[in-house]
Nucleic acid binder design. Structure first.
Length: 796
DNA sequence: TGGACCCAAGGCCAT
DNA sequence: TGATGGCCTTGGGTCCAG
């Protein structure tokens, strides 16, 4: 006391999981990266001021580099100046080139200076000026989000500042905290309107075992949601989750809560720095950001990663993943939620319903997040951004990281040019009929392995190479240097090798162990990434787009499968069907020899995929049904597999196939179809089985032809529903004059009495059944059930 | 005016 | 905002017989 005060500097080492990161600008002159780290039970923010924004300039070959550096160093544009310029050497393609590294003061200066410098004389091109600052930071510091990080920090001004570059940690014992939430809204009108309808419940569940349903204050007629929103904020602060999940939360729950909070003057301070969620456009869609936490909309994950679930409601997906079974959950019609709220006796049921929803969401999170986190680690992209990224952008993020490590300067994103297309895989017309004992063979990861084997990569493409120093693609004649190994081939080699190691390791582990499951997910992510490279090369807006590479890859694919089919036939093996990388052969001892020889002759691996006790082909490609060894039925391409046919039609087709393959009785199948037709005539079929779902792929005004789902969507829109690109439209066909589309009714208003049973008989049940049964000599008359005609046709 | 015929639009699936 | 190959239904047009 009384003596001179001495600043005490505390320092500590933080090791934990890198949850999220962003940056601030301090004093309008300096960017500071904020790392949000989960260390054990604690969440810590570490600031890093040691990273300057920059981009590259490639000089014109004839221009003096020193002079250009000086000129660019003096560039000032819209009050923004270049900070400094360095000369460096980087690779473009296979060539090492001198370039300029242009530093700026702030991240926001980069795009401004790019547009000014692009036009400076002597500048050939400006590169990597469109990489967001935070991504740049992760790439340059070799850090991965959703992975361990170790950082030494000192305290200053009440915060922790990194004293050295943070480094990767392979294992951390931090348990991330996941919070799932789901809101229920008072909805006496058809649609919900945040200006009018309050939030009545917020279900919250966490992976730490906490669970609650926050309820609004029901005060007689007037319901206030001020308190429920405040409790939600308190709840988030209390739990302090690293990840917040919802189902369709970016498009519904968050925007709704944000509007209600504004209306009620509630401070929605759920960010780790006390900030409120921000809504920023990410491409065409909206993305909600919460500071210090990863905000994950599970619907987006499901949309991209679960194509097998045709109708992506929370209930359906949760049923499909075995998270919360339909029979175990409280089911309330969505449009009756308000009534359950109003009735004090039913309110408890609504509470349970809300809890079931949020448990489903949490269950989905637990099932889906590990893979997303793996992608986040692999591609060096914050978990937050993973769900809204397509495969192309994931590949690109990974490539940017790998390019930096190799001293390669990335090409710029391309603009949209005139669309070009190229030839793809070869499909063999199947030999129609039922075949017994058929073996299915396929080339493992055919395209990646072709790219690897023939060194196909944008930087090895070499039109002027001699034939001896290059691999020459069949049909198209494109050449690729045999050495050195290309950028893509090198990456693929690493990915494939890494995955092979993991698979070997998995074989020695117990499938029940959690380590097995973790490794399984890692392996899965590597596979998906590896398989996305071919498509990436043919993606027209890709930085590393190279049409010739994509063309050569498919050309080698066609060449291989055609030759292999020929070889099998030459050996006396009957080949029944093949598609791109697979072939179906009549089983015989020769097959084993054939596979061995193919694997010796080609730089690819031909594998056994399965044996069918019997398999059925029509003469159409991409459609078959087979009974596998283990008794399961494998159906491809047929309507059963499709989301745009009525449940009834799909069920009929599936049973027909089963009668054919398992019972070997087309007669039973026909009798069954006839019974269904009769039931339909008598209207003894539940309405739900008649619903047809079709997706609106663009906005209503853009349709040239008015098909059923478009007309139904227009009706729904008039009724106040939100219909937009991506909406699934559910309708049934009712009786009436004229076009089918004009008689389609939204399921919301449809009644069984009005259903056009004839449409379902003639356009749903009979065509799908006949697609199979026509190959057994039946005619459509045979299903219609009038005994006379059946006899007549069989007589004739 | 209705039916036969053809083609494009549209959606979804196989690989 | 990874790729091409493929199947099928419906709408929307033309042509033609009656």
């Amino acid at each position: 006391m009384g003596g001179p005060t001495r600043a005490i500097t505390l320092s500590r080492t933080i090791s934990g999981l890198l949850v999220d990161l962003d940056y601030l600008v301090v004093d309008e002159k300096k960017p500071v990266v904020r790392l949000w780290i989960r260390e054990g039970r604690e969440s810590i923010q570490v600031l890093d001021e040691n990273f300057e924004p920059y981009f590259y300039v490639i000089p014109s070959p004839e221009y003096d580099l020193g002079q250009l550096a000086e000129e660019i160093g003096g560039v000032e544009y819209e009050g923004v100046a270049v900070k400094r310029v360095e000369t460096i050497s980087l690779r473009e393609g296979l060539d090492q080139k001198p370039m300029l590294k242009v530093y700026t003061h702030l991240p926001g200066d980069v795009p401004k200076l790019r547009s000014a410098i692009r036009h400076v004389v002597g500048v050939e091109s400006v590169r990597e000026a469109d990489i967001p600052y935070v991504c740049r930071y992760l790439i340059d510091k070799d850090l991965s989000p959703s992975k361990g990080v170790l950082v030494h920090a000192q305290s200053r001004d009440g915060a922790w500042w990194a004293t050295e570059d943070p480094v990767n940690l392979d294992s951390v014992d931090s348990q991330v905290v996941v919070l799932a939430f789901d809101i229920e809204v008072y909805n006496p009108h058809v649609n919900t309107n945040p200006d009018r309808d309050p939030v009545i419940m917020v279900g919250v569940a966490t992976n730490t075992g906490f669970e609650t349903c926050l309820k609004a204050e029901a005060d007689g007629e007037k319901t206030s949601d001020k308190e429920v929103l405040e409790s939600f904020v308190e709840c988030v602060k209390e739990v302090d989750p690293d990840i917040i999940c919802g189902y369709n939360s970016d498009n519904y729950d968050w925007p709704y809560i944000i509007k209600r909070a504004k209306k009620n003057r509630v401070e929605l301070s759920v960010g780790r720095d006390g900030s409120t969620p921000s809504s920023k456009p990410a491409g065409r869609i909206r993305k909600i950001k919460i500071v210090g936490r990863a905000n994950v909309d599970l619907y987006k994950v499901v949309e991209r990663d679960l194509p097998d679930v045709k109708l992506k409601t929370l209930e359906n997906v949760s049923e499909h993943l075995g998270v919360v079974k339909h029979v175990e959950r409280v089911n309330i019609p969505k449009d009756m939620i308000w009534a359950y709220w109003d009735d004090p006796e039913k309110r408890e049921t609504l509470r349970k319903y809300s809890l079931d929803d949020v448990r489903s969401a949490l269950g989905l999170a637990e099932r889906l997040l590990p893979l997303q986190a793996e992608f986040s680690q692999l591609t060096h992209v914050p978990l937050d951004d993973i769900p809204s990224m397509g495969r192309g952008r994931q590949v690109e993020s990974y490539l940017l990281y790998e390019a930096h490590r190799r001293g390669i300067v990335a090409p710029n994103r391309r603009g949209v040019e005139s669309p070009t297309t190229y030839k793809g895989g070869f499909v063999l017309t199947p030999k129609k009929g039922i075949h017994e004992d058929v073996v299915c063979l396929d080339f493992a990861s055919m395209y990646p392995n072709i790219m690897l084997s023939y060194n196909i990569s944008p930087d090895t493409f070499c039109p002027n190479c001699g034939d001896d120093e290059a691999y020459v693609a069949p049909e198209v004649g494109y050449k690729f240097r045999k050495s050195p190994r290309g950028f893509f081939s090198d990456i693929l080699a690493n990915l494939i090798e890494k995955r092979a190691e993991m698979k070997a390791q998995l074989r020695s582990m117990s499938p029940e162990s959690s380590a097995y499951k973790t490794l399984q997910v890692k392996q899965q992510a590597l596979k998906t990434l590896t398989n996305s490279f071919y498509g990436y090369m043919g993606w027209q807006v890709a930085r590393w787009y190279q049409l010739e590479c994509a063309e050569a890859t498919t050309a080698w694919g066609r060449h291989t499968i055609k030759n292999v089919i020929q070889k099998a036939r030459d050996m006396g093996i009957e080949v029944l069907y093949g598609d791109t990388d697979s072939l179906f052969c009549k089983n015989s001892p020769k097959v084993e020899v054939f596979v061995r020889e193919v694997n010796r002759e080609y730089p690819l691996e031909l594998e056994y995929k399965g044996v069918y006790r019997s398999i059925f082909f029509t003469s159409k490609k991409k459609r078959y049904a087979g009974l596998l060894d283990d008794g399961t039925i494998d159906i491809k391409g047929f309507e059963v597999q499709r989301g745009d046919w009525s449940e009834l039609a799909k069920e009929v087709q599936e049973k027909v196939i089963s009668h054919i393959l398992v019972d070997k009785s087309p007669r039973k199948a026909v009798e069954y179809v006839r019974r269904v037709v009769e039931e339909l005539r008598d209207r003894r079929v539940p309405l739900e089985k008649l619903v047809i779902y079709k997706t609106l792929t663009k906005s209503l005004k853009d349709y040239k032809s008015k098909q059923a789902h478009v007309i139904v969507a227009e009706k729904l829109s008039d009724m106040g529903y939100v219909v937009e690109a991506g909406s699934k439209i559910a309708f049934v066909v009712t009786r009436g004059q004229g076009k089918m589309s004009e008689n389609a009714e939204p399921i919301e208003t449809a009644k069984l009495e009005e259903v056009d049973t004839n449409y379902y008989i003639e356009n749903q049940v009979i065509p799908t059944a006949h697609r199979i049964l026509e190959h057994f000599g039946y005619t459509p008359e045979d299903y219609r059930g009038t005994g006379k005609q059946a006899t007549l046709t069989s007589f004739m």
